[in-house]
């Protein structure tokens, strides 16, 4: 399972891109923001796309009573996510090495993929919960209290994925480079499973 082990190692290492590149990106454009503001969500915290974007987004959001964008120390996620990603990358590499030397079979690779997918879904769920809180838990003393056509108070949850029109803003929320590297890594680990299966069958067919 030499090939599969190598693919598994490379795939797992691609997760580490998340320490350098953002996981997610949310851009906010409006008529008076032809050059949109944006935030990059890293596994270690949220940063503005340009130097003063966070300050400017917070400044605008205060009109509608939204909370400030949290600092890294304000959310446990920014401590746990790096541990999970680092841990999964290490585990993947370890599985890859053991697979390379034939110490374990290909099902371990699939297990890693399933675990990673599960963790990913949990992460997305948590992220969505934060977005919901951020967009709906509004200051009762907000300057502008907007309502929907049916009279219910308007909320401002950014989309988890895709585009949404919010008041004068066009909000676009998509995965960023770190996430693409992670997806590619996960595809590779999945490939490692199939390649490993092939290699395993070839090896043991003649036994």
């Amino acid at each position: 399972m030499k090939k599969a082990g190598l693919i598994m190692i490379i795939g797992s290492l691609l997760l580490l891109g998340l320490f350098k590149f953002p996981l997610w990106n949310i851009m906010l454009g409006a008529p008076q923001y032809p050059d949109p503001m944006g935030m990059n969500i890293y596994i270690t915290g949220i940063q503005g796309v340009q130097e003063f974007d966070i300050q400017n987004i917070d400044g605008l959001n205060h009109y509608i009573g939204m909370q400030k964008i949290p600092k890294p120390e304000a959310m446990w996620e920014f401590e746990v996510f790096p541990l999970v990603i680092g841990g999964m990358a290490a585990l993947g590499v370890l599985l890859g090495i053991l697979g390379f030397f034939g110490k374990l079979n290909y099902w371990w690779f699939l297990s890693w993929v399933l675990l990673m997918t599960l963790l990913g879904i949990m992460g997305m769920y948590d992220f969505n919960a934060w977005l919901t809180d951020y967009g709906t838990n509004l200051d009762p003393k907000a300057i502008m209290k907007m309502t929907n056509l049916d009279g219910s108070p308007m909320t401002y949850k950014p989309p988890l994925f895709g585009h949404q029109k919010m008041l004068n803003f066009d909000v676009d929320s998509y995965p960023a480079l770190g996430a693409y590297l992670m997806f590619a890594g996960m595809l590779l680990t999945l490939l490692a499973f199939f390649v490993g299966k092939n290699e395993w069958i070839k090896k043991y067919k003649y036994l």
């Binding site: 994925f161 995965p175 996960m186 595809l187």
Partner: peptide, 20 residues
């Protein structure tokens, strides 16, 4: 398994389209 491949693929496709 195959389903997850489809989801991942469609996710990539969708983002690719949007970012264009």
């Amino acid at each position: 398994m195959k389903k997850s491949i489809k989801i991942i693929a469609s996710l990539l496709l969708a983002t690719g389209l949007f970012s264009c």
